[in-house]
Amino acid sequence: MYYKETMRQMNDIGVGSLIIVALISLFIGAVTAVQFAYQLDGTLVPVYYIGYIVRDSTIIELAPTITCLVLAGKVGSNMAAELGGMRQKEHIDAMEIMGVNTAAYLIMPRLVAALIVIPMLVAIAAFVSIIGGYIATVPAGYMSSEEYVQGVRSFFEANNVFMMFVKSVTFAFLLTSVSCFQGYYVQGGSIELGKASTNAVVFSDILILIADYIIAILLT
Protein backbone atom coordinates (compact mmCIF):
# COMPACT_ATOMS: atom_id res chain seq x y z
CA MET A 1 0.00 0.00 0.00
CA TYR A 2 2.65 2.49 1.07
CA TYR A 3 4.92 1.53 -1.82
CA LYS A 4 2.33 2.20 -4.48
CA GLU A 5 1.32 5.51 -2.97
CA THR A 6 4.94 6.62 -2.60
CA MET A 7 5.60 5.84 -6.25
CA ARG A 8 2.53 7.83 -7.27
CA GLN A 9 3.70 10.78 -5.23
CA MET A 10 7.25 10.58 -6.61
CA ASN A 11 5.80 10.70 -10.07
CA ASP A 12 3.54 13.64 -9.22
CA ILE A 13 6.24 15.67 -7.53
CA GLY A 14 9.14 14.73 -9.78
CA VAL A 15 7.90 14.28 -13.30
CA GLY A 16 5.12 16.77 -12.73
CA SER A 17 7.53 19.55 -11.78
CA LEU A 18 10.39 18.77 -14.12
CA ILE A 19 9.47 21.16 -16.90
CA ILE A 20 8.74 24.18 -14.73
CA VAL A 21 11.90 23.62 -12.68
CA ALA A 22 14.03 23.21 -15.79
CA LEU A 23 12.56 26.30 -17.40
CA ILE A 24 13.10 28.47 -14.35
CA SER A 25 16.64 27.15 -13.85
CA LEU A 26 17.57 27.80 -17.45
CA PHE A 27 16.61 31.46 -17.12
CA ILE A 28 18.18 31.86 -13.70
CA GLY A 29 21.50 30.56 -15.03
CA ALA A 30 21.23 32.83 -18.05
CA VAL A 31 20.35 35.93 -16.05
CA THR A 32 23.09 35.28 -13.48
CA ALA A 33 25.67 34.93 -16.24
CA VAL A 34 24.61 38.03 -18.14
CA GLN A 35 24.45 40.17 -15.02
CA PHE A 36 27.86 39.09 -13.80
CA ALA A 37 29.26 39.74 -17.22
CA TYR A 38 27.84 43.26 -16.96
CA GLN A 39 29.28 43.77 -13.45
CA LEU A 40 32.71 42.46 -14.44
CA ASP A 41 32.86 44.52 -17.61
CA GLY A 42 35.86 46.85 -17.54
CA THR A 43 37.40 45.27 -14.44
CA LEU A 44 40.57 43.23 -14.27
CA VAL A 45 38.72 40.09 -13.23
CA PRO A 46 39.26 37.43 -15.90
CA VAL A 47 36.16 36.73 -17.93
CA TYR A 48 36.16 32.97 -17.24
CA TYR A 49 35.15 33.84 -13.67
CA ILE A 50 31.62 34.14 -15.00
CA GLY A 51 31.41 30.36 -15.37
CA TYR A 52 32.76 29.90 -11.88
CA ILE A 53 30.29 32.37 -10.38
CA VAL A 54 27.29 30.89 -12.17
CA ARG A 55 28.25 27.42 -10.97
CA ASP A 56 28.71 28.32 -7.34
CA SER A 57 25.83 30.73 -6.95
CA THR A 58 23.40 28.24 -8.44
CA ILE A 59 24.74 25.26 -6.51
CA ILE A 60 24.92 27.01 -3.17
CA GLU A 61 21.87 29.19 -3.30
CA LEU A 62 19.76 29.57 -6.38
CA ALA A 63 19.05 25.98 -7.34
CA PRO A 64 17.95 24.70 -3.91
CA THR A 65 16.18 27.86 -2.76
CA ILE A 66 14.38 28.93 -5.91
CA THR A 67 13.44 25.37 -6.81
CA CYS A 68 11.96 24.75 -3.37
CA LEU A 69 10.15 28.09 -3.29
CA VAL A 70 8.60 27.17 -6.62
CA LEU A 71 7.78 23.67 -5.40
CA ALA A 72 6.17 25.09 -2.27
CA GLY A 73 3.83 26.96 -4.60
CA LYS A 74 3.17 24.01 -6.85
CA VAL A 75 3.53 20.84 -4.78
CA GLY A 76 2.83 22.32 -1.34
CA SER A 77 -0.44 23.98 -2.27
CA ASN A 78 -1.48 20.82 -4.09
CA MET A 79 -0.79 18.61 -1.06
CA ALA A 80 -2.71 20.94 1.25
CA ALA A 81 -5.67 21.09 -1.12
CA GLU A 82 -5.70 17.34 -1.69
CA LEU A 83 -5.53 16.37 1.98
CA GLY A 84 -7.92 19.16 2.93
CA GLY A 85 -10.41 17.94 0.35
CA MET A 86 -10.11 14.44 1.74
CA ARG A 87 -10.73 15.73 5.25
CA GLN A 88 -13.80 17.68 4.16
CA LYS A 89 -15.26 14.89 2.07
CA GLU A 90 -14.86 12.57 5.09
CA HIS A 91 -12.33 10.38 3.27
CA ILE A 92 -9.97 10.62 6.21
CA ASP A 93 -12.77 9.61 8.61
CA ALA A 94 -13.66 6.71 6.32
CA MET A 95 -10.05 5.52 6.38
CA GLU A 96 -9.93 5.80 10.19
CA ILE A 97 -13.02 3.58 10.40
CA MET A 98 -11.31 1.03 8.18
CA GLY A 99 -8.41 0.76 10.60
CA VAL A 100 -5.96 2.98 8.78
CA ASN A 101 -3.51 5.11 10.71
CA THR A 102 -4.34 8.06 8.49
CA ALA A 103 -1.55 10.37 9.57
CA ALA A 104 1.02 7.75 8.60
CA TYR A 105 -0.81 6.50 5.53
CA LEU A 106 -1.37 9.93 4.03
CA ILE A 107 1.72 11.84 5.10
CA MET A 108 4.56 9.29 5.06
CA PRO A 109 4.43 8.52 1.32
CA ARG A 110 4.39 12.22 0.51
CA LEU A 111 7.28 12.93 2.83
CA VAL A 112 9.40 10.04 1.60
CA ALA A 113 8.68 10.90 -2.03
CA ALA A 114 9.59 14.54 -1.48
CA LEU A 115 12.81 13.70 0.37
CA ILE A 116 13.93 11.50 -2.51
CA VAL A 117 12.70 13.46 -5.49
CA ILE A 118 13.26 17.09 -4.52
CA PRO A 119 17.06 16.78 -4.07
CA MET A 120 17.12 15.15 -7.50
CA LEU A 121 15.16 18.04 -8.96
CA VAL A 122 17.53 20.50 -7.31
CA ALA A 123 20.56 18.72 -8.79
CA ILE A 124 18.93 18.89 -12.21
CA ALA A 125 18.13 22.56 -11.62
CA ALA A 126 21.77 23.33 -10.84
CA PHE A 127 22.94 21.50 -13.95
CA VAL A 128 20.39 23.23 -16.18
CA SER A 129 21.33 26.63 -14.71
CA ILE A 130 24.96 26.12 -15.69
CA ILE A 131 23.83 25.27 -19.21
CA GLY A 132 21.65 28.39 -19.13
CA GLY A 133 24.71 30.45 -18.29
CA TYR A 134 26.52 28.92 -21.23
CA ILE A 135 23.69 29.62 -23.66
CA ALA A 136 23.43 33.21 -22.53
CA THR A 137 27.12 34.08 -22.74
CA VAL A 138 28.97 31.98 -25.30
CA PRO A 139 26.82 32.49 -28.42
CA ALA A 140 26.44 36.16 -27.50
CA GLY A 141 30.21 36.56 -27.66
CA TYR A 142 30.95 37.47 -24.04
CA MET A 143 33.56 34.72 -24.00
CA SER A 144 34.60 31.54 -25.75
CA SER A 145 33.24 28.10 -25.00
CA GLU A 146 36.63 27.08 -23.55
CA GLU A 147 36.65 30.01 -21.14
CA TYR A 148 33.17 29.19 -19.79
CA VAL A 149 34.10 25.56 -19.31
CA GLN A 150 37.35 26.59 -17.65
CA GLY A 151 35.35 28.81 -15.29
CA VAL A 152 32.92 26.05 -14.46
CA ARG A 153 35.84 23.76 -13.63
CA SER A 154 37.77 26.22 -11.48
CA PHE A 155 37.96 26.38 -7.68
CA PHE A 156 35.55 23.48 -7.21
CA GLU A 157 34.65 22.62 -3.65
CA ALA A 158 32.76 19.41 -3.01
CA ASN A 159 31.48 20.95 0.20
CA ASN A 160 29.22 23.26 -1.81
CA VAL A 161 27.45 20.30 -3.37
CA PHE A 162 27.04 18.86 0.09
CA MET A 163 25.49 22.15 1.17
CA MET A 164 23.12 22.03 -1.79
CA PHE A 165 21.85 18.61 -0.73
CA VAL A 166 21.54 19.62 2.91
CA LYS A 167 19.46 22.57 1.83
CA SER A 168 17.25 20.62 -0.54
CA VAL A 169 16.54 17.85 1.97
CA THR A 170 15.74 20.41 4.67
CA PHE A 171 13.51 22.47 2.38
CA ALA A 172 11.75 19.35 1.10
CA PHE A 173 11.01 18.29 4.65
CA LEU A 174 9.73 21.74 5.58
CA LEU A 175 7.45 22.25 2.62
CA THR A 176 5.94 18.76 2.80
CA SER A 177 5.30 18.73 6.52
CA VAL A 178 3.90 22.26 6.61
CA SER A 179 1.62 21.61 3.63
CA CYS A 180 0.40 18.23 4.87
CA PHE A 181 -0.28 19.71 8.30
CA GLN A 182 -2.31 22.53 6.79
CA GLY A 183 -4.37 20.12 4.72
CA TYR A 184 -4.79 17.33 7.26
CA TYR A 185 -6.22 19.57 9.96
CA VAL A 186 -8.42 21.77 7.78
CA GLN A 187 -11.97 22.36 9.00
CA GLY A 188 -15.02 24.06 7.59
CA GLY A 189 -15.67 24.56 3.90
CA SER A 190 -14.09 25.73 0.70
CA ILE A 191 -13.03 29.09 2.15
CA GLU A 192 -10.97 27.33 4.81
CA LEU A 193 -9.59 25.00 2.16
CA GLY A 194 -8.40 27.96 0.09
CA LYS A 195 -6.84 29.51 3.18
CA ALA A 196 -5.08 26.27 4.10
CA SER A 197 -3.64 26.04 0.62
CA THR A 198 -2.39 29.64 0.73
CA ASN A 199 -1.02 29.20 4.25
CA ALA A 200 0.83 26.10 3.12
CA VAL A 201 2.70 28.14 0.52
CA VAL A 202 3.31 31.22 2.66
CA PHE A 203 4.49 29.35 5.76
CA SER A 204 6.65 26.98 3.70
CA ASP A 205 8.27 29.91 1.91
CA ILE A 206 9.03 31.76 5.13
CA LEU A 207 10.43 28.66 6.82
CA ILE A 208 12.52 27.82 3.76
CA LEU A 209 14.11 31.28 3.76
CA ILE A 210 14.82 31.15 7.49
CA ALA A 211 16.30 27.66 7.19
CA ASP A 212 18.36 28.86 4.23
CA TYR A 213 19.91 31.55 6.37
CA ILE A 214 20.62 29.19 9.26
CA ILE A 215 22.23 26.59 7.00
CA ALA A 216 24.30 29.30 5.34
CA ILE A 217 25.64 30.37 8.74
CA LEU A 218 26.29 26.82 9.90
CA LEU A 219 27.95 25.46 6.78
CA THR A 220 30.14 28.32 5.59
Binding site: M1, K89, E90, H91, D93, A94, I97, M98, G99, V100
Partner: peptide, 29 residues
Protein backbone atom coordinates in the same frame (compact mmCIF):
# COMPACT_ATOMS: atom_id res chain seq x y z
CA UNK B 1 -13.25 -1.24 14.09
CA UNK B 2 -13.06 -4.57 12.27
CA UNK B 3 -16.64 -5.12 13.37
CA UNK B 4 -17.81 -1.66 12.35
CA UNK B 5 -18.96 -0.51 8.94
CA UNK B 6 -19.95 3.03 8.16
CA UNK B 7 -21.66 4.79 5.29
CA UNK B 8 -20.86 8.49 5.27
CA UNK B 9 -23.20 11.35 4.46
CA UNK B 10 -21.42 12.04 1.18
CA UNK B 11 -20.48 8.38 0.58
CA UNK B 12 -16.77 9.29 0.98
CA UNK B 13 -15.59 6.97 -1.78
CA UNK B 14 -11.94 7.38 -2.69
CA UNK B 15 -11.77 9.20 -6.04
CA UNK B 16 -8.47 7.69 -7.12
CA UNK B 17 -9.75 4.11 -6.75
CA UNK B 18 -12.23 2.11 -8.79
CA UNK B 19 -15.45 0.75 -7.33
CA UNK B 20 -13.79 -2.62 -6.84
CA UNK B 21 -10.74 -1.11 -5.12
CA UNK B 22 -12.98 0.96 -2.87
CA UNK B 23 -14.94 -2.07 -1.71
CA UNK B 24 -11.74 -4.11 -1.35
CA UNK B 25 -10.04 -1.44 0.77
CA UNK B 26 -11.16 -2.76 4.21
CA UNK B 27 -10.13 -6.27 3.18
CA UNK B 28 -6.68 -4.98 2.23
CA UNK B 29 -6.40 -3.21 5.56
Amino acid sequence: RMEVGMLFQGSALFDSMTVEENVRFPLDM
